[in-house]
Design a protein around this nucleic acid. Structure first.
Length: 485
RNA sequence: GGCCCCAUGGUCAAGUGGUGAAGACGUCGCCCUCUCACGGCGAAAUCAGGAGUUCGACUCUCCUUGGGGUCACCA
């Protein structure tokens, strides 16, 4: 056992949505495997045919691949312990369920889902869940009823006394009284296993060494341990993860904002930033104070001991910061491409300088989705006002701006080198000629070109993005406006 | 409600009997500056409460309080 190769699995159900919590489980599972030279496998838990969503499996594949979480075995690439889709493993579950019945560790139950729950003589405070009414049915008559075609499910027969303990790698030893355990359904009447059974069978057959999952499974883990024991299987490591909650401390849900990977992408976050963010939700690298890590780096430093027990609040402000870090650090050409994808449709036919725009945007953008609003003043002409030109510190107002723009307009018109240096020289010289500070010229020019007081980038940058002809047209319009008022 | 789990600043957190209780996000201030950012510097802010154990508790034990999870033919 100690020499066994570490193996973890990500076992999502195909619901069509990759929730942040699921993704974090996948990440940690991947990290635990990779950090110990182990294998990471993907298994699809589609045993609830009512919740099955078309195309959901593709969402899973796509998300994992976007995040760089490549698996070693799975439904798409196969592996030594396939199939990796539970609906294709039905005979396996049936076989072990029958073995359990034969051993007396499980029994058929003929109750229908409706008749099971709290009716008749049950004491509300004492009882819970299923009342074990079919537990005492004689095996012979049970077999007879089955043969006659009666529908049945198979339930696990829990010990009535004693207690069960297991050790979780994060939470330590956990003990429960066996009488607290419900005779849970192993095999549903439709022949499909429940998660409670399938996860045990598959994890064993697929040789999973570390079962990593959310802490919501903590309280049902003793039942799984009993199953391992009944089947004579070695109990694997359990690594339960603290829940991810919203700002109000409640389990993260839609009302907290975007909670699925796709939502976050739509919001303009980068996969790498999301992965980095999620890695730190419930885990920390010890004395290390750095927080920006690539997936490869995480593979090196991730340790189970660093996993926390307390629920973690998902912080969008921190995600914003992480995203900014990744945007700032992105190779310029890559960034430029991303910007163009978004800016091109915004500009339409109007020409612009994408390189300059990307340069101006890189230190300022938080999320990609912010870009359209940030560049609206470039993609279209905004309404003018005199207040636009007022700046107390620079001692500027509309009259002063009118004077300045009037003076530099002809120079701009005559400028044949519409470039950083060309414009810079022009403003330098004009400033001297007018006996004004260059900053004042720039302030006026920027406001005039942008028709917006606050802009990403300065006067020259704005002029360059817009190009000479658009810049001159805008200034012409501004001058018109200022003269009229 | 029963059972299980958790508890360091607003948030993520380091810490493992002796520390001035790291760091990050956010917030605030200053610097830089043609605006906004970026960047730099700095500040405020935490051991839920109460009993123990100990020469000494954020660290160990118990209780209280607070929070979360779970009680399906869902996973």
């Amino acid at each position: 056992m100690m020499t066994r190769k570490v193996k973890t699995r990500f076992a999502p159900s195909p619901t069509g949505i990759m929730h942040i919590g699921n993704l974090r489980s996948a990440l940690y599972e991947y990290l635990i495997a990779r950090s110990r030279g182990g294998a990471f496998i993907l298994r699809i838990e589609d045993t609830d045919r009512e919740r099955y969503v078309e195309g959901a499996i593709e969402v899973i594949f796509r998300t994992l691949s976007q995040c760089g979480l490549h698996h070693d075995e799975g439904p798409d690439i196969g592996g030594p312990n396939g199939p990796y889709t539970q609906s294709e493993r039905l005979p396996l579950y049936k076989k072990y369920a029958e073995q359990l019945i034969a051993q007396g560790d499980a029994y058929p139950c003929f109750c229908t889902s409706g008749t099971v729950s709290g009716n008749e003589d049950v004491d509300e405070t004492e009882s819970f869940g299923y009342n074990r009414r079919c537990r005492g049915i004689d095996p012979g008559t049970a077999r007879e009823r089955i043969r006659s075609g009666e529908a049945y499910a198979i339930r696990q027969k829990m010990p009535l006394d004693g207690k069960t303990s297991f050790t979780d790698d994060v939470y330590g030893v956990i003990t429960v009284m066996n009488k607290e355990l419900e005779d849970q359904i192993l095999l549903k009447s439709d022949g499909y296993p429940t998660y409670n059974f399938a996860n045990v069978v598959d994890d064993h057959l697929m040789e999973i060494t570390h079962i990593v999952r959310g802490s919501e499974y903590l309280s049902s883990t003793p039942k799984y341990c009993l199953l391992y024991e009944s089947l004579g299987w070695e109990i694997p490591h359990f690594v339960h993860l603290p829940l991810i909650v919203g700002e109000d401390g409640k389990k993260l849900s839609k009302r907290h904002g975007s909670t699925s990977f796709d939502d976050l992408i739509k919001d303009g976050y980068l996969p790498k930033a999301i992965v980095n963010m999620i890695a730190f939700l419930g885990w920390a690298p010890g004395d290390e104070t750095e927080e920006i890590f690539s997936l490869g780096e995480l593979e090196q430093i991730f340790r189970i001991e660093g996993i926390n027990k307390a629920p973690a609040v998902f912080s969008y402000p921190k995600l914003n910061w992480m995203n900014e870090q990744y945007i700032r650090a992105m190779p310029f050409d890559t960034w430029k491409k991303r910007v163009q994808e978004i800016a091109d449709p915004c500009f339409g036919d109007r020409p612009y300088d994408p390189g300059k725009l990307a340069e101006v945007l890189q230190p300022r953008v938080t999320k990609l989705s912010d870009i359209p609003a940030m560049i609206r003043f470039l993609t279209g002409r905004l309404p003018l006002s005199r207040e636009l030109f007022y700046n107390k510190r620079a001692k500027l107002d509309a009259d002063k701006a009118a004077y300045i723009l009037e003076a530099i307009f002809p120079r701009l018109q005559a400028l044949d080198e519409w470039s950083e240096t060309g414009l810079d020289h022009l403003l330098e010289e004009a400033g001297q000629a007018l006996d004004l500070k260059k900053g004042q010229l720039m302030g006026s020019l920027r406001a005039g070109l942008a028709a917006q007081q606050v802009t990403p980038g300065g006067a020259i940058e704005t002029a360059l993005i817009l190009g000479q002809s658009e810049s001159l047209e805008r200034l012409d319009r501004v001058l018109d406006f200022l003269r009229k008022e």
